[in-house]
Computed example of a mutant assay.
Amino acid sequence: MEIRITRTRNPKKKPDENSLVFGHDFTDHMFIMNYTQGEGWHDPRVEPYGPLQLDPSTMVFHYAQETFEGLKAYKTDSGDIQLFRAKDNAARLNQSNERMCIPTLDEEDVIQAIATLVKVDQDWIPKAEGTSLYIRPFVIATDPFVGVKASSTYLFMIILSPVGAYYKEGISPVKIYVEDKYVRAVPGGIGFAKTGGNYAASLMAQVEAGKKGYSQVLWLDGIERKYVEEVGTSNVFCRVGNKIYTPPLQGSILSGITRDSAIKLLRSWDIEVIEERFTIEQLFEWHRKGELQEVFATGTAAVISPIGALSWQDNEITINNNEIGQLSQRLYNSITKIQNGQLEDSFSWITSI
């Protein structure tokens, strides 16, 4: 794929990397590629970051036909640039595209587009501890048409953002509210796809949890409202004795790449990981019996987010004395060191650019 590059004549002032806010600042350039039915994906280019000009009837505004991904780039101590599990992100983008009736992309082209844009804006990659360059690829439907159908034209775009911690608490434990009123997704729906509708469906619960002093919500299944599913936009793990439990992938939760990384690392350490359904009552019972050692969430944005408190039906429990657990810390250290080139990548997760 031949990518045309047009560099900005007005570079932005870079933010202080020691006080970065997640998703607030964006780099000088963006990647764009068009899709036209009958012609396919075409005209790949890097341009100065700026607003899009779209018709008010553009379909993405009215019918939410869009997908996105999230991954990160890092600079090693030697100055090399690394992407973490970029091939998996490209594959998952296509899984979401298929569910949303969006034409799939050549996954090697996706990697090339990401690498090209990151190289152009490599001076934006922060080096302070806990920081990275967040990469947001996304696809939007662009037909100017008001009617329910799959679009015949699309834009594939990538933007970059230097980021710090996703939660203000950083790696410190967060307080989570168990949501049993609202529903985010059900099997057969779009819960497994990275598409904006999933996140729009989660906003009301998140707002209400925030008013009560909680960082995020723990979602229960959308049918029986009792099985543990996800924490906000992250996958959830419970350490019970010497075993780790995590909900299985059954179509209503995201196939998290950090989730998969954590499972592979844990099993390589000879720790049993059980992917099966468990109820919120069971989780609270584990705590009552003194068996619940740790609860943590995994995701690209936060990597590992320890959970120090859970509130369900006016009953709040404290987990591990509201301190980060041994395994949570070990996973965080291992994943971030692989990402930063400080630990051997024995799983072939790194793409060097």
Results as ranks from 00 to 15, higher is better:
251 G>H: 10
171 I>P: 00
69 E>W: 04
127 K>A: 11
162 P>N: 13
169 E>I: 14
142 T>A: 13
142 T>C: 10
183 V>H: 02
187 P>Y: 06
141 A>I: 14
201 A>K: 15
139 V>F: 01
163 V>Y: 11
162 P>H: 08
169 E>A: 15
269 W>P: 01
237 F>N: 03
277 R>Q: 11
217 V>T: 15
125 I>K: 05
8 T>N: 07
218 L>H: 03
90 A>Y: 05
297 A>I: 06
320 N>A: 11
185 A>C: 02
197 G>D: 13
26 F>L: 04
332 Y>F: 13
105 L>Q: 15
284 F>Q: 05
322 N>V: 08
50 G>P: 02
227 Y>W: 12
87 K>D: 05
347 F>I: 14
2 E>H: 10
90 A>H: 06
313 Q>D: 05
240 V>W: 01
205 A>H: 12
137 P>S: 10
258 T>P: 01
185 A>T: 11
24 H>Q: 14
138 F>R: 05
3 I>A: 13
279 T>S: 14
128 A>S: 15
115 A>E: 10
326 Q>Y: 11
77 D>V: 05
219 W>Y: 12
105 L>S: 14
247 P>R: 11
38 G>L: 09
329 Q>C: 08
5 I>T: 15
266 L>A: 09
126 P>S: 02
19 S>D: 12
272 E>G: 09
186 V>R: 11
178 V>K: 09
19 S>M: 13
323 E>M: 12
138 F>E: 06
341 G>D: 15
234 S>F: 12
52 L>T: 07
246 T>M: 06
148 V>H: 00
199 Y>T: 10
258 T>W: 00
341 G>E: 15
217 V>C: 13
249 L>E: 14
224 E>P: 10
352 S>G: 07
104 T>W: 00
